[in-house]
Computed example of a mutant assay.
Amino acid sequence: MLSRVPVPHAAARKIQGMILSGELRSGEKVPSQREFALSLGVSRASLREALLTLETLGLLKTEPGRGTFVSQGTPSASRNMARWRYADSYPVADVFETRIMLEGRIAGLSSQTLTEIEFQALEAETDTMERNWESGDLLANVEADLEFHAIIASACPNRMIVDLYQSLRNKLTETQIRPIPITDPARMRASIAEHRRIIRALRSRDVAKATSEMQNHISNTARCAGISIASSVPNSD
Rank of each mutant, 00 (worst) to 15 (best):
residue 127 D to R: 04
residue 36 F to D: 15
residue 96 F to V: 05
residue 51 L to K: 03
residue 63 E to D: 06
residue 46 S to R: 10
residue 128 T to H: 13
residue 93 A to V: 13
residue 40 L to R: 07
residue 90 Y to I: 07
residue 154 S to V: 06
residue 70 V to C: 06
residue 70 V to K: 07
residue 141 N to W: 15
residue 88 D to P: 05
residue 64 P to Y: 02
residue 96 F to Q: 00
residue 90 Y to K: 03
residue 125 E to S: 14
residue 76 S to M: 12
residue 90 Y to M: 05
residue 87 A to H: 04
residue 50 A to F: 02
residue 74 T to N: 14
residue 146 L to K: 04
residue 130 E to T: 12
residue 46 S to F: 04
residue 141 N to C: 15
residue 146 L to G: 15
residue 145 D to M: 07
residue 156 C to I: 03
residue 117 I to H: 14
residue 127 D to W: 01
residue 97 E to N: 11
residue 80 N to C: 14
residue 85 R to S: 04
residue 129 M to A: 04
residue 64 P to L: 08
residue 137 D to Q: 09
residue 117 I to T: 15
residue 43 S to E: 01
residue 36 F to G: 11
residue 119 F to M: 14
residue 142 V to R: 13
residue 145 D to W: 05
residue 93 A to L: 12
residue 153 A to P: 00
residue 116 E to S: 06
residue 118 E to P: 09
residue 39 S to N: 14
residue 47 L to E: 02
residue 91 P to I: 09
residue 37 A to T: 05
residue 48 R to K: 12
residue 70 V to Y: 13
residue 154 S to H: 08
residue 121 A to T: 10
residue 147 E to C: 12
residue 64 P to H: 02
residue 106 I to V: 11
residue 106 I to D: 08
residue 114 L to Q: 07
residue 68 T to Y: 05
residue 71 S to K: 15
residue 91 P to C: 05
residue 63 E to Q: 10
residue 103 E to Q: 10
residue 86 Y to R: 01
residue 156 C to Q: 10
residue 151 I to D: 01
residue 83 R to D: 01
residue 94 D to C: 11
residue 38 L to R: 15
residue 95 V to P: 01
residue 130 E to P: 01
residue 150 A to S: 14
residue 143 E to T: 05
residue 116 E to W: 06
residue 47 L to M: 04
residue 65 G to Q: 09
residue 79 R to I: 13
residue 96 F to G: 01
residue 70 V to W: 13
residue 72 Q to N: 03
residue 68 T to A: 09
residue 151 I to W: 00
residue 67 G to E: 06
residue 36 F to I: 14
residue 133 W to P: 10
residue 58 G to H: 01
residue 142 V to D: 10
residue 145 D to K: 03
residue 106 I to S: 08
residue 103 E to T: 08
residue 148 F to S: 04
residue 122 L to C: 06
residue 136 G to Q: 13
residue 79 R to C: 10
residue 119 F to L: 12
residue 109 L to D: 10
residue 96 F to W: 02
residue 108 G to T: 03
residue 92 V to G: 00
residue 147 E to P: 03
residue 102 L to N: 01
residue 102 L to E: 01
residue 155 A to K: 06
residue 82 A to F: 00
residue 94 D to M: 10
residue 80 N to D: 04
residue 119 F to Y: 15
residue 149 H to E: 13
residue 144 A to I: 03
